[in-house]
């Protein structure tokens, strides 16, 4: 599998990342090197190698339905770029 220009631009759009057009070739090259590395790893013979322990053998513990957190707005909004009337402000967006 190899990445092409179209794939890179689609991923950039989905991730809301801006990639200058003269950087696209460099991105294609870097992503392909990552994929090559994956191919290389898959070539290793893992026959009879036991898998590592994984948390997916475990079961999730559930929490009782209780409210234990209190209002932290002031503290949390102290690191926000812009706020007003208790709201976080972001550049305008309308669907």
């Amino acid at each position: 599998m190899a990445v092409n220009k179209e794939t890179v631009l689609t991923i950039a759009t989905l991730a809301h990342l801006e990639i200058a057009i003269d950087q696209v070739d460099d991105q294609i090259d870097r992503m392909n090197r990552i994929l090559d590395l994956v191919d290389e790893m898959q070539a290793v013979n893992t026959h009879e190698v036991r898998p590592l322990a994984t948390p997916f053998d475990q079961v999730q513990r559930l929490r009782a339905d209780e409210v234990t957190e209190s209002n932290q707005r002031e503290k949390l909004q102290s690191v926000a770029t812009r706020t007003s009337d208790g709201l976080y402000l972001v550049p305008r967006f309308v669907e």
Partner: peptide
């Protein structure tokens, strides 16, 4: 929730 009114050029977010 997004509040589009009252914030000229910006959107207010209530989480």
């Amino acid at each position: 929730k997004s509040l589009h009114k009252d914030y000229a050029g910006e959107t207010g977010i209530d989480l």
